[in-house]
């Protein structure tokens, strides 16, 4: 009984923390962009413009929530929900601090990969159901881009899994007590761009490239449904940043400060890098994006996996495959 209450409390805490943080991100992103562009950003609503997200929220809630008459209504309504649900579900396996996580799964990494793959549906269905050429093109781009980068993302994590010897994210964090994994495994440099592509953030925001596609897959969305996509994007950014923290930057590990604070600081720093990239990099063409994925990222990911495996083999006597790698064949 107590376990259930604890779980419910944790879930509630995580949910509230995530939604608040994504609201805060709206403000943070605009402020940072302004900072790097020598502007002020939001500074009218409340002190330092801190209540800007509130104003935005009120606006988005009170807007006409319009479903185009030519859209496929049920799918059109469902699509924005999918992204929020899948991303939030992925957070279930995230260790925020020792013991603070919703589900301590042994297949944590795989669960994260599965959930983030499912969020593709949101983009594809939104593009399809809108029944508009811009939305459809955006949806198609999203599907191709996210499917491709899914692969390198998965491969890039394998090095970490090799090092930790576990798919459990708690174990992975614990395995970094001596050394954060971004040093032995260069998977971070593959995971990071893949994460950008996965969350279709700038510079990889081709599914919603406003110069060509108006607003891509969510062209026809307004009001709260649009808000869900918006929130979904920020949740995605938070998810990828948390994953990077967990997999490569030692998770909640750190001296002096409480573990949760370390986790938040590290995640925050990664998010700032996300925003910095948005402020500085131009968007590639779609063919360049796909070419980069298949011609650069895939070989790099494979080489990374090989080299990591080789190093582990060379440096340790430990059996590569627990349970007897040199066991007799069955």
């Amino acid at each position: 009984m107590q376990g259930i209450i604890a779980s419910v409390l944790t879930i509630a805490f995580v949910l509230i923390a995530l939604l608040t943080s994504s609201a805060a991100l709206i403000w943070a992103e605009r402020s940072l962009l302004a900072l790097w562009q020598d502007r002020y950003g939001p500074n009218r609503v409340g002190p330092l413009g801190l209540f800007q997200p509130v104003a935005d929220m009120i606006k988005i809630f009170t807007k006409d929530d319009w479903v185009p008459p030519f859209a496929d209504r049920p799918v059109f309504v469902l699509a924005p929900a999918i992204i929020v649900i899948t991303v939030l579900t992925a957070f279930a396996v995230m260790p925020f601090a020792p013991g603070v996580l919703v589900a301590d799964m042994d297949i944590g990494v795989l669960f994260f990969l599965a959930m983030s793959s499912l969020s593709i549906y949101s983009v594809v269905l939104a593009g399809w159901s809108s029944n508009s050429k811009y939305a459809l093109l955006g949806g198609l781009r999203g599907a191709a881009q996210m499917l491709s980068y899914e692969i390198f993302m998965g491969l890039s994590i394998m090095g970490v899994v090799l090092l930790a010897g576990s798919f459990n994210l708690n174990d992975i964090v614990e395995a970094q007590r001596n050394m954060w994994f971004f040093i032995p495994s260069s998977g971070l440099f593959i995971f990071f761009p893949a994460g950008l592509a996965e969350t279709h953030r700038l510079p990889f925001d081709l599914p919603e490239a406003e110069n060509e596609l108006v607003a891509g897959y969510h062209t026809e969305y307004s009001g709260l449904k649009f808000g869900m996509f918006y929130i979904g994007e920020y949740l995605g950014v938070t998810l990828i940043a948390s994953m990077i923290t967990t997999l490569f930057l030692g998770g909640w590990l750190g001296p002096v400060l409480p573990p949760a604070v370390w986790f938040i600081l590290k995640t925050g720093a990664v998010i700032v890098v996300f925003i910095l990239l948005r402020a500085s990099l131009p968007r590639p063409r779609f063919d360049q994006l796909m070419g980069f994925g298949w011609k650069a990222m895939l070989p790099l990911a494979l080489i990374n996996l090989l080299v990591t495996g080789g190093i582990i083999l060379a440096l340790t006597d430990a059996p590569v495959f627990p349970g007897g790698g040199n066991a007799e064949p069955l």
Partner: peptide, 22 residues
């Protein structure tokens, strides 16, 4: 060059803001 660009943009954070608060 991408990193250089990003670094350059990051350094703008320490410049004076041009907005006039009309």
């Amino acid at each position: 060059s991408l990193f250089k660009t990003a670094w350059g943009v990051f350094l703008r954070a320490f410049e004076k803001r041009v907005t006039v608060s009309y």
